[in-house]
Design a protein around this nucleic acid. Structure first.
Length: 428
RNA sequence: GUGGGCGUAGCUCAGACGGUUAGAGCACCAGGUUGUGGCCCUGGGGGUCGGGGGUUCGAAUCCCCUCGCUCACCCCA
């Protein structure tokens, strides 16, 4: 083999594609029930969209983007979906015509990282975005929606973690408090935290090193420093989750990596996903529309990693999660060139009449073709040679029982089609 | 970008104090049935032992380099 798929990318072969389609259709049904409509945006965007949207200080933008220049224009393969959705919303002037929108998307994203469990360079996300309202209930809605998708595919054992990250009014104050409280301890903490102390103190909160965790445990919590509006917003979210009977863990040290988050943030974790526990994350981002030159509009949403979700599900159920597709209704095994041509035509005609019909190809023995027919999962198989052509009738064999039925084909496939139709219609 | 583990047939793996022609199971193909599947029997194809270099009379096996996969860190879905 001369070529391999690039590192961090992989093929989804037909057997596996069935599982993906099943995940997608299950998610689509959840989106439909919640009133979210699909949006499809380009995989290719202007680099600046993510620099300003996702945030110049985020690692995603700083070192993980597939960026390139063509004819003096800088492009990037999208590393996430949210900025594109907001851009599309504004570009279509929806803020002026129908400002409240619920979107969902499903598709590939690209980040240049070292692959590991549940993480690829081309990976797939499904997600939802609500633009145009600041109701706390919508935060609860997208959380419940994300959980609904996971329930829909039968996943169990997921944990919901929620927090508020404040807003432009109260977060700066909390940041100062953290700086002051951490100052005396920072020397004893890890090198990464030393960096975070200078660049983005909040990140220190979710450092996993034992030394740092001990210090973090003594730090003031953001929930104690929220402004009144953020406090009330967060309480409403939690009450809505309570009301829906949804359990959660309020973790005051939950921090998210993208710059645009305000107020509600959440993650859904699952222990089946190795070290990185989050299969889904999201929250509110009330400043992004304005950042892109639009009006001040509240937004909230989530995105879910599909590779990770399927990996966790596969681990849970042991093996394949979706059945492979059914075989043909009728598979014809032609013997000889004229039979092959006739079977080809009959098969084409049967398809026209709504049946999944096919013929075996290749110059193999009948025995070999029957083996292949058996593997294909065909309900009926018919061996067709000169005798059948001369008699004008073929013998279809029900593979499961071996039962054989003669069918007249002198006037084409009508009787054959009717037989196949009856065979799959349960008797009344 | 950093660190650990692993690379032998399509798959799962044996073979490792260096020693004939590198094996098994599964899968695949063919025959046993001149035109009938599954089960069974028999046979067959398929490997530059990830790649390159070195040590040696001799390397899948020892040494060095390299590539790939994988897990973890960073970060994140």
């Amino acid at each position: 083999m001369n070529f391999k798929a690039p590192r961090g990318t992989h093929d989804i072969l037909p057997d596996e594609a069935a599982t993906w389609q099943w995940l997608e259709s299950t998610a689509r049904e959840s989106f439909r029930r919640f009133g979210y409509r699909e949006i499809r945006t380009p995989l290719l965007e202007h680099l600046e969209l993510f620099e300003r949207g996702t945030g110049e200080t985020s690692d995603v933008v700083q070192k993980e983007m597939y960026a390139f220049e063509k004819s003096d224009t800088r492009y990037a393969l999208r590393p996430e979906g949210t900025p594109s959705v907001v851009r599309a919303y504004l570009q279509a002037s929806l803020d002026k015509t129908q400002p409240f929108q619920k979107f969902f998307y499903i598709g590939p994203m690209f980040r240049y990282e070292r692959p590991q469990a549940g993480r690829q360079r081309q990976f797939h996300q499904l997600g939802a975005e609500v633009i145009g309202a600041d109701d706390a209930l919508l935060d609860a809605e997208v959380i419940l929606l994300a959980l609904q998708v996971l329930e829909g595919i039968g996943l169990t054992g997921q944990r919901l973690i929620v927090n508020s990250s404040g807003c432009t009014t109260c977060r700066p104050g909390y940041r100062d408090v953290l700086h002051k409280t951490l100052e005396p301890h920072i020397d004893g903490m890890c090198a990464d935290c030393d960096m975070r102390f200078k660049r983005n103190v909040l990140r220190i909160l979710d450092c996993k090193k034992e030394v740092c965790r001990r210090v973090v445990a003594t730090l003031p919590k953001i929930t104690e420093h929220l402004c009144d509006a953020c406090r009330a917003h967060f309480d409403t979210v939690l009450q809505a989750l309570d009301g829906a009977g949804q359990t959660y863990e309020a973790d005051p040290y939950l921090v998210r990596g993208l710059d645009y988050y305000t107020r509600t943030v959440f993650e859904i974790h699952h222990e089946g996903l190795g070290a990185r526990g989050a299969i889904c994350g999201g929250g509110r981002y009330d400043n992004l529309v304005e950042t892109f030159g639009g009006p001040s509009l509240g937004c909230t949403g989530f995105s879910m990693g599909m590779e990770g979700t399927l990996a966790v599900l596969a681990g849970q159920s042991g093996e394949a999660v979706a059945p492979s597709g059914p075989g043909p209704d009728l598979l014809m095994v032609p013997v000889g060139a004229s039979a092959e041509n006739q079977c080809f035509q009959w098969s084409f005609s049967l398809r026209d009449q709504g049946h999944y019909s096919d013929i075996t190809y290749g110059s193999k023995s009948v025995k070999a073709k029957m083996r292949a027919a058996n593997r294909s999962g065909s309900i009926f198989v018919a061996v067709v040679g000169d005798d059948e052509l001369a008699a004008g009738e073929i013998i279809v064999k029900r593979m499961e029982t071996g039962e054989e039925t003669k069918i007249d084909v002198r006037s084409g496939t009508n009787q054959l089609a009717a037989f196949l139709y009856d065979a799959r219609t349960p008797p009344t």
